[in-house]
Design a protein around this nucleic acid. Structure first.
Lengths: 69, 69
DNA sequence: AAAAAATGTAAAACAGTCTTGACATTTCCG
DNA sequence: CGGAAATGTCAAGACTGTTTTACATTTTTT
């Protein structure tokens, strides 16, 4: 397993969301958003796609393998 | 949990791969590819991104929520 | 400086992802 | 037809993702 890099925190802040409000829009817990922002683990594919849709960026631009840019 | 729809089988066949050869290129087991093609469960985000990179299509075009096209 | 809001963190429980090994069925081709 | 290759499927086990509850720390606001 590899924990992916992500730019979730900046995507969320651009929306003016807190972790709690962002989590609520996605239907997940605040702790889940916190853990993903801090790269404790990867989201499920389903959650990643919901995040992508919410912030309007392709999945691969939000989450990427450490070796890639 | 929602099992996503996907067009993995056609993506794989376009490459002329068998489930076994496709799995090997991705570093996972043949059973994993079989289960995903048959929508038994979703791949991890990491695997979805590797698949996307291998077949050259964005994640969201390979895997999508049932309600979406 | 004090109160309130936001973020970090941890444990337990449960659901989901992936592996290996094994065997059955289907498809492809001499 | 007969054999080989490809696909389907199952079970057990290891590890990953998410929830809830609870509390500590940091940041923002008054």
């Amino acid at each position: 397993m590899t924990v992916l890099k992500n730019k979730l925190r900046s995507c969320r802040k651009e929306r003016g969301d807190t972790q709690a409000s962002f989590a609520e829009e996605l239907g997940v817990s605040r702790q889940t958003i916190n853990a993903i922002e801090n790269e404790k683990y990867n989201p499920s594919l389903e959650l990643a796609i919901k995040i992508s849709r919410l912030v309007g960026e392709p999945v691969q631009e939000i989450f990427y393998l450490p070796k890639e840019g």
